[in-house]
Design a binder for these strands. Structure first.
Length: 496
RNA sequence: GGGGCGUUAGCUCAGCUGGUAGAGCAGCUGGCUUUUAACCAGUUGGUCAUAGGUUCGAAUCCUAUACGCCCCA
């Protein structure tokens, strides 16, 4: 495990011998080669030039990168260097290189990092290339690259050694660039609308803002337990109390739960809060956001996810949770949804872990998740969640059983969750007390009573709406990825 | 937590109802001065995930374990 040479093999030994010779010959691992061009820049600038034009006015460049392919033909050779922008072909002729340089090149291995200086030209087949006059080995690669044609396909190795995956599989590089573009677009959207980006604590004395089990850690000097945050919500609303009326945070949350294609213990969440807005305003904002993201990242509002097309340009449907239950369970009558006996029986038949303290609201939510959620393919806002399952959301004025809350579903998955915020400190205190009672009764996901948060509300939280968007799931949608691990550079795995 | 599938050379994969381990790429040797999955000839390379078991004989059958993937709770 700690032994770096534990998986040594013949091919590595051969390369180690070359490295030893290189060391003996002088200064290995040089850092004085300065490149002045990237592969993509060269293709952009000279790709359209005629071969004759390039020959008439020779352009000298210095490129560097990893050698990912090589074709040696006696006293001349071709190779491709891969840099952050793409690939550029090198052409090496023994007669055009300094004494011994061609032989040194033949001694290099696929995977080595090379620097090359030479002249831009076009080959007979029209590929833009650099005819090399000077070649330097900058970094010896001791380990061989995966198959040049098939790349690396073993999922376990791709996740554990993402660096190899990134070298070998261009699609993976492209995916994580798209992830970065999506996050850029998210930030731009909120910044343009006057939202302030903030960073709130990742380590919480009291975990809050969501129903989830936290990771626990310990601060030695203060001798206190701390919890990795399960959500930033309560801190962000404190900031709205403080007068930052539009804030957002884009950062990691941690939940001590299982790992699946939809869940990683640490995941990226965008949360934003806007004073003097309600949940309807946020639904409008969310639709605008999704359209903007699609336009920025994909150049169109239509995307294909796992073989099905979605058009984010169309208005997103808005459907009550109760109505959704009825629509997707045609055998269930409206009156039955208000009959606790029927609901409990239904839930039991679905193998849901029904508990005695579950009220109608909790039963609805569980039944909804089981029978409706996977069917919600086209974008839909499910609205009006029961107060029982929404301890931080404002009640509806016309019916306190419900809150002003929505969740956005696309492709059968919850992508966003938002609501008008509960800003009545006395109502919030009462809801915390109920949560604390549940926790005392053994519900590990129930919330703590957060006295400082109540105190903040007592200073006055203006009417506000807030929302969280699961960024990893968003990236999955925009990159057609079936597993969250595909959109995380280093997903959590058991130690090998 | 339960079920299914997988793990063979550095990589990608074959390997049938059990009979002593194979290919392509990479590597090594030689040839080749515009190739691009370069080509041609030769060649090295394996604790068949791990530990047991059945058998004259196990990559192959059985059991357990580890790791991964998928589905369910």
């Amino acid at each position: 495990m700690s032994d770096a040479h534990a998986d040594e093999h013949r091919l590595i030994a051969e390369r180690r011998a070359k490295l030893a010779a290189w060391r003996a010959a002088g200064a290995p691992f040089p850092n004085d080669f300065k490149r002045d061009a990237l592969a993509a820049e060269l293709h952009a600038r000279y790709g359209a030039c005629e071969a004759e034009a390039l020959a008439a006015e020779p352009v000298s460049v210095a490129v560097a990168g990893r050698m990912v392919s090589r074709r040696i033909m006696g006293k001349a050779a071709f190779a491709h260097l891969q840099d952050m922008s793409g690939r550029i072909q090198l052409y090496l002729r023994r007669d055009a290189l300094p004494e011994g340089a061609y032989e040194a090149f033949k001694d290099c291995d696929l995977g080595d990092i090379l620097g090359a200086r030479g002249t831009v030209f076009k080959t007979r087949t029209g590929e833009l290339s650099v005819e090399v006059r000077e070649l330097r080995l900058l970094t010896k690669a001791l380990r061989p690259l995966p198959d040049k044609y098939h790349g690396l396909t073993d999922t376990e190795q791709r996740y554990r050694q993402r660096y190899v995956d990134l070298i070998a599989n261009p699609g993976v590089r492209e995916l994580f660039r798209r992830r970065a573009a999506l996050i850029d677009s998210l930030r731009a959207f909120f910044r343009e609308r006057g939202f302030l980006e903030v960073e709130t604590p990742m380590m919480h004395p009291i975990p809050g803002g969501a129903a989830a089990r936290p990771f626990v850690t310990h601060h030695n000097a203060l001798d206190m337990d701390l919890y990795l945050r399960i959500a930033p919500e309560l801190y962000l609303k404190r900031l709205v109390v403080g007068g930052f009326e539009k804030v957002f945070e884009l950062n990691r949350n941690f939940r001590n739960e299982g790992v699946s294609t939809q869940h990683n213990p640490e995941f990226t969440m965008l949360e934003f809060y806007q004073a003097y807005a309600d949940y309807r305003d946020l639904m409008d904002l969310t639709e605008a956001l999704f359209r903007r993201l699609a336009e920025d990242v994909l150049g169109t509002t239509r995307l294909v996810y796992q073989g099905r097309e979605y058009d984010l340009g169309k208005p997103f449907e808005r459907l009550g949770l109760r109505e959704a239950l009825l629509r997707h369970n045609p055998g269930v009558g409206a009156a039955e949804l208000d009959d606790p006996v029927v609901l409990r029986d239904w839930a039991a038949r679905l193998d849901l872990p029904v508990k005695a303290e579950w009220g109608k609201g909790k039963l609805w939510l569980e039944l909804f998740e089981k029978t409706v959620e996977p069917k919600l393919l086209d974008p839909v806002f499910i609205v009006d969640y029961p107060t029982e399952v929404s301890p931080l959301a404002r009640r509806r004025d016309d019916d306190p059983f419900f809150t002003e809350r929505f969740e956005l579903f696309i492709a059968g998955r919850e992508i966003a969750n938002g609501f008008s915020e509960l800003n009545d400190p006395e109502d919030q205190a009462e809801r915390f007390r109920r949560q604390a009672a549940k926790k005392a009764a053994g519900d590990e996901e129930a919330m703590h009573y957060d006295a400082d948060y109540i105190r903040a509300l007592e200073y006055g939280l203006p009417p506000t709406a807030g929302e969280g968007i699961g960024v990893d799931r968003l990236v999955m949608l925009f990159t057609d990825s079936p597993s969250i691990r595909d959109v995380l550079l280093f997903p959590l795995l058991r130690p090998a």
